[in-house]
Nucleic acid binder design. Structure first.
Lengths: 257, 257
DNA sequence: GCTTCCATTATGTCTAGACATATTATCCGG
DNA sequence: CCGGATAATATGTCTAGACATAATGGAAGC
C-alpha cells in the first residue's frame, strides 16, 4: 500500500515546502487576489505526491487567510485584509528587563470589595461578586513605567484571598494560578487624571496609553486589569505576516526579526 | 480498504469535535498546564477512529498554542501565554459607518517628494526613493475622526503617480492596487502638536492615539501610514480566544459575539 | 426567458496502514 | 556512580485509496 517516501533534500517536510512555494507566489503578486490556484489534483501531479499532502499544504494557506477554498469551484487567492494582526502584549517585567533596564514593582493597595455597578469596565465582570482589588506600580530604572489597577474575581480564583501581592505582581501570580483563558484587550489614549498623574510622576492632563484587559476562564470572569503608561514610556507592536508559516502548525508566524 | 465513515449526528466533522472536546477540557482547567493529554493511540481508541484523524485534531490544538507536542514524550497542555492576541484594525470608513455615523473624507495635500533621511519613521521605508505623500482627514458625522499622513513608494506602486486621492482615501485605493503584504503596526499615545490639533479641532497637547503602519510587499517597502485619533474618538480591540476553532482551519477564532 | 433538476466536480473527511525521526528510559560497562 | 550505547515509543509524514458534500453549469421543462 505504500511507496517509498521520497523526501526532498532540504529536510523540510513536503507539505511545508508546498505551502511555502504557493505562499511565495501569492506574496510576490505572481498570483493576484481572486486568481484560482491549481486544483489539488494538479498540484498532486506536479509535486508527485498524494492528495492528502497537497491538501494539508493548501489548508495551511487557507488557515493563514491567504486563500479561500470553495467546493466545486477551486481555491482562490484571497483579497488582502490587513485588518487583523498579531498584537504582542508584553509582560511588563520581561519588557523592561529586555530593554536592559532594572525592573521595579511596588504594591499600592490591596483590598476586598464588591463590584461597583456604576463603572462600565467592571460591569463586564458581572457574574463575579466579591473581588480583590490590587493597585500597583511598575518601574523601569526607578522611574514609573505603568500603573496597574486590577480586579480579581474571588469566585473564579479563591486562592487569591490568601495571596500576598507585596512582592509578586498580580499578573505573574495569576499566570501561575489560573489555567487557560480567553481575553479581550482595549487600547486607548487618555489624559492622565490627578491620581494617575501623581502615581506616574506626570503633570495632570498629559497623554497616557491605557491597556484594559478582561479575562474569562470557561466563560467565567476571572480578572480585569487596567494598565496606564506615560505616552513616551512605550508602544504596542502588532505584526501581520502571512508569509511565514511555523513548522509545526501552519499558523502564520511573526517574523523572527 | 475503507470502513464506512460513521459521522456523528452533530454534522460536525469528527476531528473538529475532538479538537473542541480536548479544548474544553483544557480551558475548563480539567487538564491543567503541564499535564499530558492522552496519547494519539488512546484517543484513537476512545473515539474509534484512525490516528490521522486524532492527529489532525491535536495538531489544531498545537497550532492554537493550547498544547505542546514532544516526540516520544506525548502531548502536554501548554502554559498559557496571554502575550499575543488578534488585533482588529478597522478600516476607518467601515468603522464609522458601522457605528451608524456619516463617514466623511477630505484630502488635505498630495505631493511627490523624496524620503527625508532625518525621520526615523521614514527610514524603515528606505529602499524606496521617491514617494507620494498624502495627508487627509476622516470625519464622523462631520467631526474630525482621524488625521492620516501616508507615504506611498512610487517604486513599489508606480500607478500611484496618476492616482487621484481627492475623493478616494488612499487606504482603499491601495487595497485595490497592491496585493499581499506584510505589515507592522505600532500603537502609542501622544500629545497633539499644533498642526494635528488644528486638523482635529483639538487643543494642542490633548492626548491622541497614534497608529503607525509600515507595509511591505515581497520584502519591498510599499507604504507608511500614521493615523492620529483624538483620545475619545475610538479605541483598538484585540482578542485572545484559544477556545474557538474555526471550521475550516483549526485557527483560533475570535468569539462571534 | 425562466426555473427546476441533475450530473459533474473540487474540496472535505476519513481509513489502515507504512516508514521516518526524535527523544527518553534503561541497561551496561568503566 | 556516572556516562554512553541501545531499544522502545510517540509523534511526524505520507500513501492510495473511499465516500460525503456542496456548488456549479447546463439541460430539460414550463
Amino acid at each position: 500500500m505504500t511507496g517509498p517516501v521520497a523526501r526532498a533534500a532540504g529536510s523540510l517536510a513536503l507539505h511545508h515546502r508546498i505551502t511555502a512555494d504557493l505562499a511565495a507566489r501569492i506574496r510576490s503578486g505572481d498570483w493576484p487576489p481572486g486568481r484560482r490556484i491549481p486544483y489539488e489534483h494538479e498540484l498532486m501531479a506536479s509535486y508527485g505526491c498524494a492528495r492528502a499532502t497537497v491538501s494539508k499544504a493548501v489548508q495551511a494557506l487557507a488557515a493563514a487567510g491567504l486563500v479561500e477554498r470553495r467546493r466545486r469551484a477551486g481555491t482562490f487567492v484571497a483579497r488582502p485584509r490587513v485588518q487583523s494582526a498579531v498584537l504582542e502584549i508584553p509582560e511588563l517585567q520581561a519588557e523592561i528587563s529586555g530593554r536592559g533596564q532594572a525592573y521595579g514593582y511596588e504594591l499600592i493597595s490591596q483590598q476586598r470589595r464588591r463590584l461597583a455597578p456604576g463603572r462600565p469596565d467592571e460591569a463586564r465582570l458581572r457574574p463575579a461578586g466579591a473581588v480583590l482589588e490590587v493597585v500597583c506600580r511598575h518601574l523601569a530604572n526607578g522611574a514609573p513605567f505603568a500603573v496597574e489597577e486590577r480586579l480579581i474575581s474571588l469566585a473564579a480564583a479563591p486562592e487569591a484571598r490568601s495571596a500576598d501581592f507585596r512582592l509578586t505582581p498580580p499578573g505573574a501570580w495569576l499566570l501561575d494560578h489560573v489555567a487557560w483563558s480567553e481575553a479581550e484587550h482595549r487600547i486607548a489614549a487618555v489624559a492622565a487624571d490627578d491620581l494617575t498623574a501623581m502615581r506616574l510622576s506626570l503633570d495632570p492632563g498629559r497623554p497616557c496609553l491605557v491597556l484594559r484587559r478582561w479575562t474569562w476562564r470557561a466563560g467565567e470572569a476571572v480578572t480585569f486589569v487596567r494598565q496606564t503608561f506615560p505616552a513616551d514610556a512605550f508602544e504596542l507592536v502588532a505584526r501581520f505576516a502571512p508569509g511565514g508559516f511555523s513548522q509545526a502548525s501552519g499558523l502564520p508566524a511573526v517574523r523572527p526579526d
